[in-house]
Design a protein around this nucleic acid. Structure first.
Length: 420
RNA sequence: GUGCGUGUAGCUCAGGUUGGUUAGAGCACUGGGUUGUGGUCCCAGGGGUCGCCGGUUCAAAUCCGGUCACGCACCCCA
């Protein structure tokens, strides 16, 4: 048996890591600008943390978690998403007592036992942010704006659509659910098997069923947005107004139903039509009940998570070129003496911030030049017997194909000229 | 979890239907043409358990079964 990675888990190789850094750096920069701080939490939690917060009837909890029993018999789960663990950490560290407003972001691998597909993995990276404390709609809006700003920063917005909706709250959602059940019940026989089950457990989910007949029936179903209580409607309108005031383009899609039970009021999704059926790039919403549900003080919160693999995939489509690593200087040497002289030269140039590559063996000048070219070196330094004798380095400008002898002792002072 | 498709060199792919000597190409890699000069060109070389396991056969990359992985759709979701 050849050794290999687990199904649905993948390596991110050096040739694509620049894109990952680009995306991660932009996220960190923007999020910090909006006052968020990074938090790092464990990958493994007690299973309760997830089953209590995500809702026991969700697919994630029902059939997608990597759950196993620890040596002492306790049930542990590899995190399938970030929010539950953040809230656990928020409560455990009494963060509510340190400040009434807590802004956190995180990155890391999540685990879901799904059938792998393009843009869907069993081990995948997410970046997410949580704004815990305020219940006012301007916090929802700020979070959505920040997310959109991030996508603007990495130039992906031309490929993206932002959709928002409201799921109501403890007051209006139960009534709405009741209305939905009443609407669907008479046509129950025509719904697909899944939806017949959903009618019992979570009628909201019928709204985003993809079956043709279910869609037809759902088309005339009452909308949550027409059934919001006054507080929820005011909240939703305020969010929309805030978004409009800064020119963030969005559409309202009352059919957005989040996969996790903890959401209340505002929900949003950013999707693309460039990635096939795994079209959600980022999604989130308000979850005012979760902190209390997990044993903390009643605390409002909004958050989102985005899928790194999907963003990087999109990024490759948007910007196919321009992420190759470049070297400032390649030092080519001929002979053992020159090799020994090249070593401290490389050391000192790197100390000055110049990126330097060299050979390690004793290849021909030709093959060293070839490698310099392949690495995209701006300059190649050639050191041979002649140069050693004269105490110079032959500096070749690779783009201009021009050469110039520079004295060994002057090279370091000129280091800035070798960087683009 | 379901359906369909694909799996041959590091990469992209021929060959397979009509089983038959050493399984090919381009790119990449190494070396040489130019005993010290890249990106073009020419020459040569290295590299393949034909995804894996089993079956049919004198003989399997080729036919059959299973399995694994990937892709697409369902599902789900970031």
């Amino acid at each position: 048996m050849k050794i290999k990675s687990i199904r649905g888990f993948h390596d991110i190789l050096p040739e694509s890591i620049k894109r990952w850094h680009f995306v991660e750096d932009a996220a960190k920069r923007i999020f910090e600008l909006y006052g968020f701080s990074e938090i790092r939490i464990p990958v493994l939690e007690f299973t309760d943390v997830f089953s209590r917060s995500l809702g026991t009837t969700t697919d994630i909890v029902e059939k997608e978690m990597y759950t196993f029993t620890d040596r002492d018999g306790s049930s542990l789960t590899l995190r399938p998403e970030g929010t539950a663990g953040i809230v656990r950490a928020y409560i455990e560290n009494s963060m509510h007592a340190k400040s009434s407003i807590t802004k956190l972001y995180y990155t890391g691998m999540m685990f879901r036992h799904e059938r792998p597909q393009k843009g869907r993995f069993r081990g995948f990276y997410q970046i997410g942010a949580e704004l815990i404390g305020p219940q006012e709609p301007s916090s929802d809006a700020e979070l959505v704006v920040m997310l959109w700003r991030f996508f603007e920063e990495i130039e992906l917005t031309p490929f993206l659509v932002l959709e928002i909706s409201s799921l109501g709250d403890q007051n209006c959602r139960p009534q709405y659910k009741e209305k939905l059940v009443q609407y669907f019940a008479p046509q129950k026989e025509e719904l697909c098997e899944d939806c017949q089950r959903r009618l019992q457990v979570n009628p909201l989910r019928i709204l985003d069923c993809k079956q043709k007949r279910c869609k037809e029936i759902a088309a005339n179903a009452p909308s949550m947005l027409d059934n919001l209580c006054e507080e929820c409607e005011t909240h939703f309108n305020y969010v929309k107004e805030n978004l409009l005031s800064v020119g963030i383009p969005f559409t309202i899609n009352p059919k957005i139903v989040r996969g996790l039970d903890y959401y209340t009021r505002t929900v949003f999704e950013i999707t693309t039509d460039k990635l096939g059926s795994q079209n959600a790039v980022a999604a989130g919403g308000r979850y005012d009940g979760l902190v209390e549900e997990l044993g903390g003080p009643a605390t409002a919160a909004v958050g989102f998570a985005m899928g790194m693999e999907r963003i990087v995939l999109l990024q490759e489509i948007a910007l196919p070129e321009g992420f190759q690593k470049k070297v400032d200087v390649f030092i080519a040497y001929l002979g053992e003496e020159a090799k020994k002289a090249a070593f401290p030269l490389a050391f000192n140039l790197r100390k000055k911030g110049v990126s330097v590559e060299t050979d390690y063996g004793s290849k021909s000048l030709k093959s060293q030049m070839k490698r310099a070219d392949k690495l995209g070196a701006n300059f190649t330094f050639i050191i041979g017997e002649e140069e050693l004798k004269q105490g110079v380095v032959k500096v070749r400008d690779m783009k201009e194909s021009k050469e110039e002898d520079i004295k060994f002792e002057d090279i370091i002072n000129l280091s800035e000229t070798f960087q683009p």
